[in-house]
Amino acid sequence: MIKPREKTPDLNIQLVNGTQWKLSEQSPKNFTMILFYRGKHCPVCKKQLQELQASLSKFTERGVNVIAMSSDTEEVAQQTYKEWNIKDVPLGYGLPIEEARKWGLFISKGIKDEPEHFIEPGLFILTPESTVYWESIQSMPFGRPEFKDVLGGIDYILKADYPARGEA
């Protein structure tokens, strides 16, 4: 697990639009928000990513760069992008399970129609220097932070110059 104020591992991930996203190349005004999601098999993820699509401009207004990623294959991620209403969400795929573990994400073995192994949800808000400011990691698909709450938290952080917490 990466504690707040600690530097994260670099991420280099393919996006469904054919480009590559590198954490080390991000230069947000305030934060980078990485949303790790379980994959196309997850209806809760579909709802969450569609809510992210609806909130995307609010994150942009606050100087927050956003990306969502999973360990899905390129083919599955392309289907996700086409079938879900997430046309403006940068969507990454192929996150190696070993990389997900470095971030402290939980890994599940698939049941029924799920992939053999996949990541459980996580939300990370990083400083422009790629240190953890805020993280929320789930071991289940349920109980994820609501984007309105995340946006409210970011508003408070920016207004009050509130420091990252949980590092001790």
Rank of each mutant, 00 (worst) to 15 (best):
A77P: 02
A77S: 07
D113K: 01
R38P: 12
L123D: 09
E61I: 02
M33R: 10
R144E: 05
E99D: 09
F36W: 10
Q20C: 11
V16Y: 11
F147N: 01
V132W: 02
K46V: 10
L49F: 10
L123K: 11
F36I: 13
P141Q: 02
F147C: 01
N30L: 07
Y133L: 03
Q26C: 15
E83Q: 11
C42F: 03
E146N: 15
G166A: 05
A68F: 15
Q79H: 08
K148E: 07
S71M: 14
L23F: 00
I111A: 03
F142H: 03
P115W: 06
F118K: 09
I157F: 03
N85H: 14
I97L: 08
I13L: 12
I67E: 04
C42Q: 08
P43Q: 08
V64T: 15
E75A: 14
A68Y: 12
V76C: 14
Q14V: 10
V150Q: 07
P141D: 01
M1Y: 03
C45T: 11
P121E: 13
I137D: 12
N85E: 14
K87V: 02
L95G: 13
V66Y: 02
G18A: 08
L11A: 07
M69V: 14
H41K: 04
N65R: 13
I157V: 10
A54N: 07
I107Q: 03
P141F: 01
S55M: 08
S70Q: 13
L49A: 01
D155N: 12
F31L: 05
Q79L: 06
L91S: 07
W84Q: 03
L105C: 08
E6V: 02
Q14T: 11
S108N: 01
I154F: 02
L56A: 06
W134S: 14
L35R: 14
